[in-house]
């Protein structure tokens, strides 16, 4: 159910933007758009189906703690 809703939402975004981009023949935009959308989709999908994704904030935290340790 949740996955279905997710697909619905991203399909809505795609249906909203893609025809406009294609009409303007902005192929570069299309590529960037698609990449971003796919990134967003995979991230959301992983969260919905429960795949663990590394958390960037933890990474930042680690870096900061390491950096603080240096001084």
């Amino acid at each position: 159910m949740n996955t279905l809703l997710l697909i619905l939402a991203f399909a809505a975004i795609a249906a909203y933007e893609i025809p406009e981009i294609i009409r303007r023949r902005q192929w570069k935009e299309l590529v960037v758009f698609a990449v971003l959308l796919i990134v967003g989709f995979t991230m959301s999908l992983f969260q919905t189906i429960g795949v663990k994704v590394p958390n960037p904030v933890k990474g930042i935290e680690l870096i900061i703690k390491k950096a603080a340790g240096l001084f």
């Binding site: 809703l5 619905l8 939402a9 399909a11 809505a12 249906a15 909203y16 893609i18 025809p19 406009e20």
Partner: peptide, 22 residues
């Protein structure tokens, strides 16, 4: 026209989505 069509489709999707979440 395709412009309205795409907006319309996305509107329907979005409504369905928001309706089911909200």
């Amino acid at each position: 026209s395709p412009k309205w069509l795409s907006k319309f489709i996305s509107f329907i999707f979005m409504t369905a989505f928001l309706a089911s979440t909200l």
